[in-house]
Computed example of a mutant assay.
Amino acid sequence: MFIQLDFESKKPIYTQLKHEIIAGIAKQKLEAGEGLPSVRSLAADLGINLHTVNKAYQQLKQEGFILIHRQKGVVINPDGVTPADEDYHAELKDLLRPSIAESVCRGMSEEEYLSMCRELFKEFSEGEEK
């Protein structure tokens, strides 16, 4: 699997894992209906606690990225992720606000910020690897 975790990062491991799986879906490395390793298997492969994997999986399930079946195991949501709605737009705006504020404080121009956003968006929408 393509998951890379930074054990020295301030970001919690479960958050990194969750983001790596979402990135895999966005880059089409993980297809709708495709199975993911069990909690125990992925924890062993990555060398992390199974409760960490379980927390990431539960958040992904809650957000609609995966389904967890007793017999089938963990699968990427075969119906795809719920499209962005007004609630998602409001949540995204709340997430971007501190990032933009910090960028302004650090002297970053609007064009620099938007250029970086375009580059990242292109990376995910075209499935590129950076």
Rank of each mutant, 00 (worst) to 15 (best):
L42Y: 02
E110T: 11
E102R: 03
L95H: 07
Q59A: 03
E119R: 14
P37L: 12
S41F: 00
E8M: 08
P98G: 02
G24I: 04
C117A: 15
E110A: 14
Q28T: 01
K130E: 07
N77G: 10
D85Y: 04
S41D: 13
S115N: 08
K55I: 05
F124K: 07
L92A: 14
I100L: 10
L17E: 02
K18S: 06
I22C: 12
G33L: 04
V75H: 04
K93G: 07
D6A: 05
H69L: 04
S38A: 07
M116P: 02
E34S: 11
V75S: 01
C117Y: 10
E123Y: 09
T15E: 06
L5E: 08
H19G: 08
M108F: 11
L92D: 15
E111M: 14
A44I: 01
T82V: 15
E86L: 12
I13E: 01
A26C: 13
N49V: 12
I25S: 14
N54K: 12
E91W: 06
K72N: 15
P12A: 00
Q71D: 10
N77Q: 11
K130G: 10
E129V: 15
E34G: 15
P37T: 00
M1R: 02
K93Y: 01
K72L: 13
I3T: 05
K29D: 15
E123L: 07
K61I: 10
L46E: 04
L60A: 03
D87N: 14
V81L: 13
G24R: 03
P12T: 00
G73T: 08
L114K: 05
E111K: 15
G127L: 13
V39K: 01
C105I: 15
L67A: 06
A26T: 08
E110W: 12
I21Y: 09
V81R: 06
R40Q: 07
E102T: 06
S99G: 07
H69P: 00
Y14K: 06
C117K: 14
I3L: 12
